[in-house]
Computed example of a mutant assay.
Amino acid sequence: MGERKVTVAAEVGLHARPAATFVQRAKQAPMDITVAKAHGGDAVNAKSILAIMGLDVRQGETVVISAEGEGSEEVLDELAEIAGKP
């Protein structure tokens, strides 16, 4: 299973527009993808905007994005870039 640890840079955290962009990209991937706060908490479905918003990830917090399957490394790189953008 591949994973990326990303510190969220957006001022609004992983909410609103960054969350929507993140979920849109995740939905394009054929594999299951999860996101969790790096310092505890359950992993949630990265393809669910409600689940992502429910994590309440704020600027400066670190998340772990995980996926497994063919093409997952590329998808993880793209999602990490989205989550880490200011």
Rank of each mutant, 00 (worst) to 15 (best):
M1K: 12
V6N: 03
V57T: 03
A20T: 08
R58V: 01
V57F: 01
K47M: 05
M1P: 14
S72W: 08
I52H: 08
E68Q: 12
A10L: 02
I49F: 13
K5F: 12
H15N: 04
K85S: 14
I65C: 01
A9N: 15
P18R: 10
R4S: 05
Q59S: 12
E70I: 12
A43F: 03
T34H: 06
A19Y: 06
H39Y: 11
M31Y: 15
G84S: 04
A29R: 05
G69R: 08
A20Q: 13
G41W: 11
D42Y: 10
A19M: 09
E3G: 03
A46L: 04
V63A: 03
M31E: 15
A80H: 10
G2D: 15
Q24V: 03
V8N: 07
S72H: 11
G2M: 12
E3W: 12
G60M: 10
G69Y: 09
L14T: 04
I52Q: 05
S66A: 15
A67Y: 02
N45V: 06
F22Q: 01
P86I: 00
A16W: 09
A83I: 10
V75R: 01
P30A: 13
A36I: 02
T21C: 05
E74K: 15
V12D: 08
A43K: 04
I52W: 13
P86H: 13
E61N: 07
V63E: 03
L50C: 02
E61H: 07
G13S: 03
N45Q: 10
L50N: 11
I52N: 07
I82Y: 07
E74W: 02
V35F: 09
T7L: 06
G60K: 11
I33V: 14
D56E: 11
I33H: 09
V44A: 08
E3M: 12
V23P: 01
E73G: 13
H39M: 12
G2K: 14
G41S: 08
P18F: 09
A80L: 08
E61Y: 06
I65V: 10
K5E: 14
Q59D: 01
G84I: 00
A19H: 05
S72T: 10
R25E: 14
G54F: 04
P86M: 09
P18G: 09
D77L: 12
A51D: 07
D32I: 04
T7I: 13
G69C: 12
A16E: 02
V75A: 05
L76N: 01
A29F: 14
G84V: 00
I52V: 15
G84E: 02
R25K: 15
V75Q: 04
A9S: 14
D42H: 13
A38Y: 05
A9I: 01
E78A: 15
A20H: 06
P30L: 05
L14D: 05
V64Q: 02
D42W: 06
A80M: 06
H15L: 08
A43Y: 02
G71T: 08
H15G: 00
R58S: 03
P18T: 07
V44L: 09
R4M: 10
E70C: 04
A16D: 05
V63S: 00
A20C: 00
E73Y: 11
R25T: 12
M1I: 10
G54W: 02
V23T: 00
T7Y: 11
S66E: 13
P86D: 13
A83M: 10
A36K: 15
S48L: 05
A36D: 04
I49Y: 12
